[in-house]
Design a protein around this nucleic acid. Structure first.
Lengths: 343, 343
DNA sequence: GTGAAAGCGCTAACAC
DNA sequence: GTGTTAGCGCTTTCAC
């Protein structure tokens, strides 16, 4: 059943049916009601695919995420889908598995889908292929919004967090507890959260006149296994740190595993402050102090930015060129892991 | 740029270009190469929306999940998307938030999208509206595959797990450690995992000639807060249980919170066995014994079942009618929480 | 092995 | 306010 069947039944033209369906004002109230009645009676459902082809764009938005199973990204996904529901957009879900090739492949396949917009947490900020593809989407009128991570040599809308400030606060928290030997398990240098949190770490040490010890800067690449290795390296130093800043949730897990395997204890052998909460730990005796942020809201906001872009397409050229790069504030949740236990 | 531009450039008809694009055998090798070269040179990308409209079906599959942030469902999502990539299907993501209205709304909106197939973890097995809508999809040639949860009065393909056996094993594990007073924090009675795990619990007690105590059966509805309340109720009984079977991951969290808040200790005040693992706990001192299952693989398998359905559309009628309801086996991971600590 | 023409279901000028 | 007509970009008979 299609728009023609409805038109015939209602004794109007397909155009009128289309107008009714799309809420066009130029329809007499009587006609509208007549058409609506037929639609109801026949349980007619319009065909979006046909509509999309006709108008040259779909109501679909793609979300590319590097790690589907990371709870941090899931919260973002939740925000995106909830907000998408508000605007009646469908969300295409793609996991890139932190793999640039896979990211390219997904982006390539999306060209054929007449996407309305893209939300992406890119794998790597220096990946020129991804950047090129994203720019092409924008050129074709498909807006792109970044979350959390950034890309170089481009200026897309995005929702980020104040990573430098957040990291600063985390490290400061350790310093204020008397730690002089403060280390960091850092993320990849090719991602905004990676280098910015490192920057915040350095800034904090600098503020408190603590000299930076290169041995205390190790890389965990935001992964469990690598962070475990990084932790091992730190703890096996001749002069190990007393406080460590873990720059993401996976790093936290890696460290905890190290402690567990070696029989070491948090707050006895070492103090930790993390970035991004691990909610399950709050059910245990591991009282981890972390920097956190409104993650779900970051997802909502990304969808919101996309919507603004859609709206500004219709508007005057001036408004079109506004680039919106929002940052959410982080905050510290003190739970005790920043200080040694009183014996 | 479209198929006509390519055709003109290559000096062939649009039909031939289409044939090349779709790997039709009836094209001379020379022609094929000629067309392919033009396509490459012009960086032409076919328009899937147009194709979908023409063939009357998209390459899109929808996944409806009740709780986007539950790690169990995320693992499934991961499996689904990975497998979808193999077949080049796109996955539409919808969170229903355990809300039937929302589920209905999503299902309704999907009618317009010419979906190729549906994968759903339904909110409620007795929801006749959802069942009706799902049946309609099948009637329209859109296959439906269930995961984990089932629906009544219908017979869709699905991937389930051996919940009765799994629950049996969990409870048996407690009994074998000497527990006579074994309770269960059960899920909703309107879901297969809910009632089947309860069934397994009863069966185990029965096998070991332990009388069922109605006080020991409480409902947590698979949620943290309700499970917390259920736990409270159990522990405040005049004759509290010594061992409790927690029927999902959220119930585990609820119980842990209760223990933490009341200062009670696992393996000292009560023993627990859970259903579905919480990976973060393995990084802590909570050594929880759980029944688990190949969750990621359940997602892959669901996609695989869908693919079979797609394929069987072309086939003879006999094969068409095979209904595939697969069950994955569960297994017990013993970590110690089933027995009291030696003082 | 190839092409012409009709059609998928809808929208958008344009005319009335 | 409403209808006519011509697409959107592709596939698919059917004829050659």
């Amino acid at each position: 059943m299609n728009i023609y069947d409805i038109a015939k039944e209602a004794g109007v033209s397909p155009t009128t049916v289309s107008r009714v369906l799309n809420g066009n004002k130029n329809v007499k109230d009587a006609t509208r009601k007549k058409v609506l009645k037929v639609i109801e009676g026949k349980k007619y459902v319009p065909n979006m695919i046909a509509r999309n082809l006709s108008v040259g764009e779909s109501q679909n938005v793609a979300f590319l995420v590097p790690d589907i199973e990371n709870p941090f990204f899931n919260k973002i996904l939740h925000g995106i889908t909830d907000q998408a529901l508000v605007y009646n957009y469908n969300v295409f879900m793609f996991g890139t598995d932190e793999n640039s090739d896979r990211e390219h492949r997904v982006l390539e396949s999306l060209k054929a889908e007449m996407m309305k917009g893209l939300i992406i947490i890119p794998v790597c900020e220096t990946d020129t292929i991804t950047v090129g593809k994203l720019k092409n989407f924008e050129k074709q009128g498909v807006p792109v919004v970044l979350i959390d991570r950034d890309v170089k040599n481009a200026n897309f809308d995005g929702v980020f967090s104040e990573d430098i400030e957040g990291a600063y606060e985390a490290v400061e928290c350790l310093i204020q507890e008397g730690h002089k030997k403060v280390a960091i398990i850092s993320g990849p240098e090719t991602s905004r959260p990676g280098h910015d949190r490192l920057k915040g770490y350095k800034k904090a040490l600098d503020s408190y006149k603590i000299e930076i010890n290169p041995d205390y800067i190790v890389y965990g690449n935001f992964r469990e296994e690598e962070s475990y290795q990084a932790m091992k390296k730190l703890m096996e130093l001749k002069n190990p740190p007393t406080g460590i800043f873990l720059t993401n949730n996976m790093a936290i897990l890696g460290c905890l595993r190290y402690l567990k395997e070696t029989g070491k204890k948090l707050c006895r052998d070492v103090c930790l402050v993390g970035f991004d909460d691990i909610i399950e730990l709050t059910y245990t005796d591991i009282h981890l102090t972390v920097v956190t942020r409104p993650v779900y809201e970051m997802g909502c906001e990304a969808m919101e930015l996309l919507e603004r872009r859609f709206e500004s397409k219709q508007e005057a050229t001036a408004e079109k060129m506004v680039i919106r790069r929002n940052s959410v504030k982080t905050w510290l949740v003190k739970r005790g892991s920043e200080k040694f236990a009183k014996p």
